[in-house]
Design a protein around this nucleic acid. Structure first.
Lengths: 353, 353
DNA sequence: ATCGTTCATTTGATCGTTCCAATGTCGATA
DNA sequence: TATCGACATTGGAACGATCAAATGAACGAT
């Protein structure tokens, strides 16, 4: 009934003290080369693995990140968060951290859970998503000096974009993404391009819309902007798109999301007399399935950056230093890319324009 | 600079020994009512929380479950696993366990990670998905007596259904689900119902197909079975459905998945001269968005059962008893339900039949 | 009055690691 | 030769809880 080897076991076998074995594992540079090799050989031979519970107790660190498990009822866009979570787990794993999930019904419940996790020493840091300006959670974490990073800027949902906070976040440049999509259509010769977005006032939605306008403004021909809006659901997207098809002579549409693109797709199939180019946003399986071009969020890169920022905070917080980086260095925007599919390669009708 | 209170702190304040405080928390029934109340008052007052690292070190348990984070490239069906993960996290949380994620590229990598997690004392048990007959992982875990439970039966993918293993699993009765869907259509008067499934040989797919056949066989009118197959992709589903529409006079279709339903939906919209009833499987956001009826997998219940089974194993494994339950008691099948939407309420054309 | 039980509580050891400070060794410098 | 500093290693304590066994008190049975 031999139980797992411990530091002491290895130490005895290698003829050194437990502390030296500990150093071999955590601070190899403190150990003389010859000793290092010998101890490492013993470690390999007896298949020693450090006990994380003991390490956590002694170091007062958990090496664990907390992430809230959400299920967007909207669903189609939940895909992005799902992939983000996957990427975060991978990135964390690579730097010796692990990801622990929790669920909470609302912000209050979430803070209650944090309180517990932090008090019990369950987590060293947190990864957030869906932050908004004035989000109580941000203040809560900041006050308590809890290391955390958010996926997404804390947009103001009233339309203003004053305060992007001082906390660490990583976001995808939605404006650049939509601009990319619009420019792609312009380059293909389209001159009657609509943008089908969300209601005015959503930070993310307005940002993406801005990208559309920028692209048009930068175009020599200066085509007229056609801004359509829907509530974000597939059904309403279909309705609004159908309506627009009756009134305007469009050759292309850029949508604020793939859910909306799906709705637009249906309307086009049903009501358009000729094929209309379509580009969505998020590059979800639905877009892939229906061969709809879409703007792809580089979630893997976002995740990698998040973990970097978080690890920095955790490491410096431990040494009780003030965080040295400036706010700007802790707020990162990454560029999305356009995934071209057949939906944006439709021929432009000759009799239009 | 007051750090968090410990057992000793509380013990001193309450005038008892640390062990008594420990009992108040973990075994209240061992403590006299008066003492219990007094200690609990102190605990509340100083806001004491037990340190998990210390508990884990002493008890040699982690109270953590490992779950592999996957991202189905198929995507649309990834939705089910996503919700399952959410539910598992919630159920675990409710019984004092937490969920830790890890990623792995293949079964070998996964076992390597397990080896590490188990050796380091990182997890007490595992939750698996996507098991199949002869899955090397099942043997690996069984040999090492690691508590685990799987979502889904370990189907044989060669068509036989001999061995469902002796390990614990919870699955959704796909056959019953499709039978439910088919019966619903039969009750509505449909007599020309097709089933659009996956290629022969997939355990899950064949099981669902069996439900279709059962329903038809149980019907007095005994309509003819029309079994269509596609590779599971949206595109191929569209193609196969379009083909079938040209050859057979169908009034309704049941599909093996929502991805396939999406494809069928497109084909119907494009090629059918009259509206054809449609029922999918998985009740994903896509089905909801397009108002397609679908068979809903009760993932919350599956998760709850999984956690129950797992907790049992963990608790008994710790006491080094042989697991008392029989295999049958550790293999649970739960029934899905049909979510009716407009896609299955289409009128039946009069000139057919 | 003594003994044996049960119940409530305490004592002391232990889980496996890392922190902190001390020790010993060596070569370089004065 | 004595002193210093840099380096390699060690000893002892501590992290905060629980286990296992011992103690003490209360109480009915003998």
């Amino acid at each position: 009934m031999s139980s797992r080897p411990t530091l002491a076991t290895v130490a005895r076998a290698a003829g050194v003290s437990p502390q030296t074995v500990s150093n071999v594992i955590s601070n190899p540079h403190l150990v003389a080369p010859a000793t290092l090799a010998r101890v490492q050989a013993v470690i390999a031979e007896v298949d020693y693995r450090p006990n994380t519970a003991a390490r956590r107790l002694r170091t007062q660190r958990s090496f664990v990140l907390g992430v809230r498990m959400t299920t967007d009822m909207d669903g189609i866009s939940g895909y992005v968060l799902d992939h983000f979570l996957h990427a975060v787990t991978g990135s964390a794993q690579r730097v010796g951290l692990s990801v622990m999930l929790y669920v909470a019904d609302d912000a209050t419940a979430e803070m209650r859970i944090w309180d517990q996790l932090l008090a019990e020493g369950g987590v060293d840091g947190l990864v957030l998503a869906h932050t908004h300006a004035g989000d109580p959670r941000i203040g809560w974490l900041t006050e308590r000096q809890v290391p955390f990073v958010a996926f997404g800027r804390p947009w103001c949902d009233n339309g203003s974009r004053a305060d992007l906070g001082t906390h660490a976040w990583v976001d995808v440049d939605g404006r650049a993404g939509v601009r990319l999509a619009t420019e792609h259509l312009l380059a293909a010769g389209h001159r009657r391009i609509a943008f089908l977005g969300w209601p005015k006032g959503s930070g993310v939605g307005d940002d993406r819309l801005a990208g559309y306008k920028e692209a048009l403004a930068a175009c020599d021909d200066a085509p007229q902007a056609v801004v359509l809006r829907c509530d974000g659901s597939v059904a309403d997207a279909t309705a609004q798109m159908a309506l627009a098809l009756r009134e305007a002579d469009l050759t292309a549409v850029v949508t604020v999301s793939d859910a909306v693109a799906l709705g637009a797709h249906a309307a086009i199939r049903e009501h358009a007399t000729y094929d209309i180019a379509l580009i969505g946003f998020d590059n979800t399986p639905v877009a892939r399935a229906l061969d709809i071009s879409s703007v792809d969020q580089p979630v893997a890169e976002v995740a990698e950056r998040c973990i970097e920022l978080l690890k920095q905070q955790i490491d410096t917080a431990r040494r009780r230093q003030a965080t040295p980086e400036t706010t700007a260095e802790r707020q990162i925007v990454v560029r999305p890319r356009l995934v071209e599919r057949s939906s944006s390669r439709t021929p432009i009708p000759a009799d239009i324009d």
